[in-house]
Amino acid sequence: MSDEKIFIVEDNPVIADLISWRLTEMGYTVIGTAEDSTEALARIDKLMPTLILMDINLPGEMDGIETADEINKKYKIPIVYISSILDTDVMERAKKTKPRGYIVKPFTDNQLKATIEMALQG
């Protein structure tokens, strides 16, 4: 059982619930989810997770990369991108935020677990 507190930022609530369930089955503690950058920033400030899974496509003023950049300015919380996008320009933008990982949807439980474990090792 893991003591890590994971927060999921995913604009699709069905996918967020599925990832949350998968993580719980793996022994992780999911402390919350958010569907956009505004909700994510407000909840992260209160919950203080040990890891954030961040979708890149988010509705609203900021996408996941911009949200991660804002989080990095205030906290030292590792971020792993979860996205269906595998585009060179997006990857270059994402790399500037120094993520601990980037996993492409759909992913297996083994891929998710390995990515999280590596990200938490810092």
Rank of each mutant, 00 (worst) to 15 (best):
E39K: 10
D17A: 15
N12G: 07
A16S: 12
E39D: 10
K5E: 14
M48F: 14
I44N: 10
S37I: 05
I15D: 10
E10Y: 11
E10A: 07
A40P: 03
N12P: 09
A16E: 04
I52F: 06
I31M: 06
G27A: 07
I15G: 05
V30L: 02
D11V: 12
E35F: 11
E10P: 07
I8K: 05
K46A: 13
M26H: 03
V9E: 09
I44L: 02
I6Y: 05
Y28C: 02
A40I: 03
V30Q: 07
N12I: 15
P49W: 00
P49A: 01
P49N: 00
A40S: 03
N12K: 15
F7R: 11
I8Y: 06
G32R: 06
I15F: 10
I44K: 08
I31L: 08
A42S: 06
D11F: 12
Y28K: 02
R43Y: 12
E25W: 01
T50W: 05
E39G: 01
F7A: 08
T24N: 08
I31S: 07
I44Q: 09
D36C: 12
E25G: 02
D36N: 15
T33W: 00
G27M: 01
D17Y: 13
R43K: 15
A40W: 06
A16K: 02
T24A: 07
F7T: 09
S20P: 00
I31D: 12
I6C: 03
T24W: 02
L18N: 12
R43P: 08
L51V: 04
G32D: 09
L41G: 06
A40E: 04
M48R: 15
E35S: 14
I52D: 06
T29S: 15
S20E: 11
A42C: 03
L41S: 13
W21V: 08
A16G: 11
T50G: 14
P13R: 11
L41R: 07
E39Q: 14
R22G: 00
K46C: 03
L23D: 01
D36R: 09
P13V: 10
T33R: 09
Y28W: 07
K5M: 13
F7V: 10
I6P: 01
A34I: 04
M48P: 01
V9K: 08
D17T: 13
S37Q: 08
R43W: 10
L18R: 11
D36W: 13
E10K: 10
E35I: 14
V14D: 15
V30C: 05
I6A: 03
G27T: 04
N12M: 14
T38W: 09
L23T: 01
S20C: 05
T24I: 10
S20L: 04
L18M: 13
L41P: 13
L47T: 09
I15W: 00
P13H: 10
D45R: 15
E35P: 00
K5F: 03
V14M: 13
D11A: 14
R22L: 03
A34C: 08
T29Y: 08
R22Y: 01
A34N: 05
E25Y: 00
E25H: 02
I15S: 03
N12L: 10
S20F: 01
I8D: 08
V30W: 05
D36T: 12
R22C: 00
K5D: 12
K46E: 14
S20A: 13
L47Q: 10
V30T: 07
K46I: 14
G32T: 10
G27S: 04
L51K: 02
L23K: 00
G27Q: 01
T33D: 11
D17F: 06
A16M: 06
A42T: 09
S37Y: 05
I15P: 04
